[in-house]
């Protein structure tokens, strides 16, 4: 496990624990509303479309496309400095919702809008694995 100390670790809550448990098992989980059938990300206690409170978890395909990106050259803090330039991207999942992530396993300069990507997981600690994306 590479050293990620000093990075900003997510702190799972009751709403998000199932998502982060999924990440630990290398599964990207989304919520789907039982009432209206729409998907949402990030995880919430209610459906953001209809406020329905019956949400089921589905496993997303992990596939999506880059809808925007940037190469961060001035890191947010010392802990991220070694990664520069790193790609911060918005990825629209095939299921609909958009999430922020890093696009890796390619040269940063090769990333472009519309690029198809798929999720992989980077282990930061025993509890936390972070979903990231790479070109398909």
């Amino acid at each position: 496990m590479a050293n990620h100390s000093g990075k900003i670790f997510p702190t799972p809550t009751r709403e998000t624990a199932h998502y982060w448990e999924g990440c630990r098992e290398h599964k990207l989980r989304l919520q789907c509303c039982v009432s209206c059938g729409k998907h949402q990300f990030y995880p919430r206690s209610v459906c953001s479309h209809c406020l329905g409170d019956q949400l089921r978890w589905i496993e997303a395909s992990g596939a999506g496309k880059v809808i925007s990106f940037t190469l961060v050259r001035r890191a947010v803090s010392e802990a991220y400095k070694a990664d520069t330039p790193y790609v911060v991207a918005l990825v629209q999942l095939d299921e609909g919702p958009t999430m922020m992530s890093n696009v890796e396993r390619c040269t940063p300069e090769s990333v472009e809008i519309g690029m198809r990507v798929t999720a992989f997981f980077e282990e930061w600690s025993e509890e936390i694995s972070i979903p990231k994306f790479c070109p398909i």
Binding site: A75, S101, N102
Partner: peptide, 26 residues
């Protein structure tokens, strides 16, 4: 940025706006 779903990826304030700029350019 969102503590669980954005900040772990190391975005800076310029990066957030760069996402907007890049989309407008495209």
């Amino acid at each position: 940025g969102h503590g669980q779903f954005e900040r772990p990826y190391g975005p800076t304030v310029p990066a957030y706006y760069a996402l907007i700029a890049q989309a407008h350019m495209a």
